[in-house]
């Protein structure tokens, strides 16, 4: 079973990305935010998102989204089991998206080493203080080379590009 994991900080677009390309209504575990995060986002994922997406050859790619917050890190371990690769979505409008990049690369280090990853940067239309080259330079400084794309998680084609890029580097 081809299982791809979507991760990244809260609000980066993981649930939206899976919803935008899933062949079925996605299974979602969103609940109302009870803290200050609700000022920017009303709901958050506390267990997982799930959907699947059919490739041109008819095979299915299963899509699992993780909760974004670190307090749910036990779900990261559970969800990455059996995964073939990671889609890391980063919100360019957060205060320090390069720190987010480093944090998630470290948190999923073992999984990435065994599989592979692509980076999707969302909300570049809201903030362009960090460029795609800044992300690539950060990766380069860590001796990691992964494809980096600007994406709109609401656009199916943008999300499909991430999936196809990930499958290409895994081959």
């Amino acid at each position: 079973m081809d299982k791809i994991i979507f991760t990244g900080p809260m609000g980066a677009g993981k649930t939206t990305a899976i919803s935008s390309i899933s062949d079925i209504p996605p299974i979602s575990t969103e609940v109302r935010c009870s803290d200050d995060a609700q000022l920017r986002k009303e709901t958050t994922t506390v267990a997982m998102d799930y959907g699947y997406f059919s490739l041109d050859d008819g095979s299915r790619v299963h899509l699992y989204g993780t909760p974004g917050q670190e307090r749910f890190d036990y779900m990261w371990t559970i969800l990455t089991k059996g995964g073939i690769g990671l889609v890391l979505l980063l919100d360019n409008a957060r205060p320090d998206p390069l720190a987010d990049l480093t944090f998630y690369l470290d948190a999923f280090k073992d999984f990435i080493q065994q599989t592979g990853a692509v980076i999707g940067v969302t909300r570049m239309d809201v903030s362009n203080q960090t460029s795609l080259d800044d992300y690539r330079n950060t990766l380069f400084a860590r001796d990691q080379i992964f494809p980096v794309f600007e994406v709109d998680a609401r656009q199916p084609n943008d999300v499909k590009i991430l999936i196809h890029a990930l499958l290409a580097i895994l081959q």
């Binding site: 299974i27 979602s28 575990t29 609940v31 267990a47 997982m48 749910f72 036990y74």
Partner: peptide
């Protein structure tokens, strides 16, 4: 507490 929220949400789903 955090794991309980995850489980309860999965149960609801």
């Amino acid at each position: 507490a955090t794991m309980g929220s995850t489980l309860m949400s999965l149960g609801d789903t």
